[in-house]
Each structure stands twice: as C-alpha cells, then as structure tokens.
Amino acid sequence: MNKAAQATGHSLLALMEADSARFRQQAAECPADLGLWTKLYTVSQIMLSAMQQSRVSSALEEICSNLLGCEQLAIIDISRRTGRIQFLKSQQLSSEKLMAVAEQGPVLESQIQRGTLQVISDKRDEESGKFSQLGITALVPLWLDDESSGCLLLFSLLPQRSGYDIEDREVLRLLATHAGPCLRSEKRG
C-alpha cells in the first residue's frame, strides 16, 4: 500500500499539500509536459479542498468529467467480511446497469485486491470481458479502511474521446492513491 493509502488526518493533508506543490513546480518548469503536470496539480488541489469541505465524491465526478471526459461513473465500497457491495455514488447510470455491476461483486473484489489501476480496453482476459460488456472502461482501486475496499468505476467516455491517453492514466493513478484515503477521511468525519 502506498504512503497516501496509509496516511490519515493531518499526515494525509501534509502529503497531499507536498504533492500539490511538487506538481505545480513541475508545471512551471516543464513546458513540454505542461498538460500532464497541470492536470496532476489540479487533481491534487481539488481533492485537497474537497476533503476539507467533505465533498470528495462530488469532486471525483468533476475531475472525471472535466479532465478525463467521463461523465458516467460509480464509486463502490465492498465489505471484506461480507463481500457486500454498496454504491457510495453513481452518476448517469441506470438502475439496471447498477444492478448488473452489483452482480459482479466477487469479480470486482478480486480485481480490487490486485490494487492496481486497470484500463479495461488494454486487457483481453475473461474478467475484463465481463467489465467491457457492462461498458466499464477503467477500474481504479480505492483503499477505504481496514475492513473495506472499493473502487471508482469509469464507464463510457464522451464521444470525442477514443480512449485514455498517457496523461489520463497518470490522473487515474493519482486518483488510485489519493481518492481512497480522502473518502476514508471523509467517512470518518
């Protein structure tokens, strides 16, 4: 598990502030990678401010919509004891689609346990095939607390997007390390 996943409260804030400052500096110093560093800085700042205002899940929606071009998403919490799925948030998804996702609980959990970002279109295995059929384009694992883990599921991209590029994948990796601890911190109040 990464540093952010283990951090709580003030240490999480400090870690995120340090990351944010680093991304801002890189954005100023590396014009060739301006888009990448600006996006990472924006994500870290928005998450930092959202955590302080207890609006992390709304911030995730905004980030995915504005920076990735994905308006359909779900944030899922899976109990490690019971395997039960709980939708913490969903946007622009039908109840039928949510039920179909819920039926894939065990498969989702096994994917989450791997702990790495998964862009579904990159894979050709049986489990990824099931996600593809549901319209899932990326699975971002989130570490929520000792008893549950979760994920951010991204569905169809806007028509003008053909897939996730290198910048998008770095944004998704940052969300994988920071979004879980922020949600956890929000849950604990």
């Binding site: 801002r24 600006t38 928005i46 911030a59 905004e62 919509s65 504005n66 920076l67």
Partner: peptide, 14 residues
C-alpha cells in the same frame, strides 16, 4: 466547475 477553472487558471498563470 472548480476543476475546469483551476486547470485553466493554472495553465494561463504558469
């Protein structure tokens, strides 16, 4: 959107 405004502001200010 806060995200879009921050992204735009950062690009222009930097």
């Amino acid at each position: 959107s806060n995200t879009a405004l921050l992204m735009g502001e950062t690009v222009f200010k930097q």
